[in-house]
Design a protein around this nucleic acid. Sequence first.
DNA 1: GTGAAAGCGCTAACAC
DNA 2: GTGTTAGCGCTTTCAC
Lengths: 335, 335
Amino acid sequence: MNVTIKDVAKAAGVSVATVSRVLNNSAAVSASAAENVNNAIRELGYSPNFLGRNLRKCETNVILAIIPSTEQTFYSDIIRGMQNAASESGYDILLSTSNSSHNVEMRLLNMLFNRTVDAAILLGTQLDVKTLTDLNKQHYIALCCERVDGADVLTVTVDDKGGAFAAVDKLIKMGHRKIGMVSTSVNSLSSYDREQGYKKALEENGINLREEYIYRGTYDFKHGVKAFEHFMGLPEPPSAIFCISDILAASVVKKAISEGYSVGNDISVCGFDNILLSWMYTPGITTVEQPCYDIGRTVVEELISNINNGTKSNKKIMLPYKIIERESVGQYNAQ
Amino acid sequence: MNVTIKDVAKAAGVSVATVSRVLNNSAAVSASAAENVNNAIRELGYSPNFLGRNLRKCETNVILAIIPSTEQTFYSDIIRGMQNAASESGYDILLSTSNSSHNVEMRLLNMLFNRTVDAAILLGTQLDVKTLTDLNKQHYIALCCERVDGADVLTVTVDDKGGAFAAVDKLIKMGHRKIGMVSTSVNSLSSYDREQGYKKALEENGINLREEYIYRGTYDFKHGVKAFEHFMGLPEPPSAIFCISDILAASVVKKAISEGYSVGNDISVCGFDNILLSWMYTPGITTVEQPCYDIGRTVVEELISNINNGTKSNKKIMLPYKIIERESVGQYNAQ
DNA sequence: GTGAAAGCGCTAACAC
DNA sequence: GTGTTAGCGCTTTCAC
């Protein structure tokens, strides 16, 4: 019932080889033959079956990108970057969400073994070092946004430590000396790296680290609220709070406002990511921008270069951050 | 170099047919043969090449979902619903983003013609009625969240008109008589339907429609700001504003606060969608919830049922909304 | 410049 | 219960 390359060949009065040649521009074909083929294609409404092609060529030209969920608008620009870079090389990006589940992730990665995709990019993963390293031996994979310690896999992230350092240093330069940090206790190296940046900024400015100034929860919105409650219950509450995400920063801001604080005056709050929310919020949230579009582009470019060259150059690429100043951070004023 | 079903057959001392049988549980196989096969599979690290299988079976068991972008957290639960429903029937959902571009959409839909996917779901589309109807004749497609007038295609949406009616009726019951609406002039029937609900609520409550109370822009955040400026420049500014999205509502709220209004007291603002932003915001934004998860589940269930039965029952399904009350809407008080 | 034919990995009809 | 084999739609080598 379905029109195949054979039907086109018959209609055009040529062999299937010739049809394939005009389809792929893979070899010279006489002008008249090409015309006949193109006419036949048009008349029959033919489009090639990629299953046949892919099977034959052992490649699909599609890259799977696995994101934890689409709940974070944060991924939006990364994906755009990925798609643009991919399409420039004749690849397609297919997305799937893992809901941060180890099992779902493995099931999706099966597409690699199935030959349904040529490569996979993990935007945050639950897999351990060994699994990743093994996977990388047999397939083309890359990590994006979240590095995994010890995993020798192509990785593209923002400079997490540098961004956190710059943000906290900025807070200090604005007079703040008591600075809280909202981090996570989940298994995430971006949290860890940002903590390192926070600590370095304190150290370089001669401020002692106070363990009670670091609150660790999850990425969930409610943990900003909890962090704020924790900090304000302290004998000496911080005058500024640095959060590892804009979501958590928004949560801190919301709680602060509801407690009657004037955010940016009584208390300063800084986020990380620069998602839409951070500038939509009232007050606008000062934050550390990730170069999402570039992160997406870069990881795909490197990955495709690996595929094309048959290499496994497992670079660790860190892209630069940018501080975005808004209203949620202000000069320190002793009350 | 790659291990195929043939290698497994050889190692297990059986024919490829038998291997295929244990792989697919498609026919009875003796216990000993099955064991041999499974051992061979394990030892060789074999996993079936789906390109071969899919080509042979003329099906892929994957459904493509095309979303405009991942910028709207709104899609998150819809996708989760889709994935759950799909996986229960042995299907996978693959996501792709169109950036609301007609061309990108067509390129993605090529996967239908390519036989790379079995069906496609469009979450908002730039395609016209004819294209959609034609597409639906040759393939399995569905619309989700956005209906298209006259397109005889399986469609699942929320009850847009009903939701808007309920929201505006609520506003009126709280004493508001001058109610603005922030809508869009883009080609979107959900906007249109919500406008119809707005108008119906006014009418049933004996309030005259004032054209200057409807502002039409795009879905872009900045249009909330513009709408607010427009309304407040009117001789008789509205005391409540109903927006067709939470993003626009947040924008209106942000502008109102920056102009010194107390939102929920001086002015009421209601959104639509119930995205995370609406409860993260300060003040929390009253809104109309869409049953996103169910929308996702439903569209996939119907689509798969069509595929399995070879039918094209192009139902138009409307799922119920729910009003979520927060702080951005309050009783009318004459100043 | 063109065609015949092999074969990518798999499933399923058929024969035993 | 099992094996043989045709063939899904395509690309590509090889011979002409």
